Amino acid sequence: MAGVEFDETEQAAAHRLGLTGAEDVEWQARCELAALYRLLAHFRMTDLIDTHISARVSGQPGHFLINRYGVLFHEMRASDLVKVDAQGQAVQMGSTAAPAQRVNRAGFVIHSAVHQARPDLHCVIHTHTTAGIAVSAQRDGLLPISQHALKFYGKLAYHEYEGIALDTEERGRLVAALGSHKAMILRNHGLLAAGESVAAAFHEIYFLERACQAQVAAQAGGAALHLPVEEVRLRAARQFDNDQASGIIDLAWEAALRLVQEQGPGYRC
Rank of each mutant, 00 (worst) to 15 (best):
R77V: 08
A98Y: 06
F43K: 02
A165E: 04
H122F: 12
I164H: 09
H111K: 11
H42D: 11
L208F: 02
A2P: 03
L257F: 06
A98W: 12
V82Q: 02
A55G: 11
A177I: 07
Y37R: 10
K182G: 12
D24G: 06
A97F: 13
L208Q: 09
E230L: 13
L234V: 15
E231C: 00
G163M: 03
D241S: 15
G62T: 14
T96D: 12
R16S: 14
Q261M: 08
L121M: 11
Q101K: 04
A35P: 05
D140A: 14
A149V: 02
V4G: 00
I110C: 05
L257P: 04
Q138C: 10
L121P: 07
H52F: 03
G221E: 06
A201H: 01
V135R: 01
L208A: 01
A200H: 00
F43H: 13
A35D: 03
D120L: 14
L121Y: 05
M1K: 13
S112P: 00
Q87T: 08
D24R: 07
R16N: 11
F108C: 14
D120C: 12
D80E: 10
L156E: 12
R171F: 05
V57A: 10
H122N: 07
E10M: 15
A34I: 06
S58I: 14
G222D: 03
D120T: 15
D241Y: 05
F43W: 14
A217D: 02
L186P: 01
I205G: 03
V232A: 14
R238S: 13
Q138V: 05
D85V: 02
R102P: 08
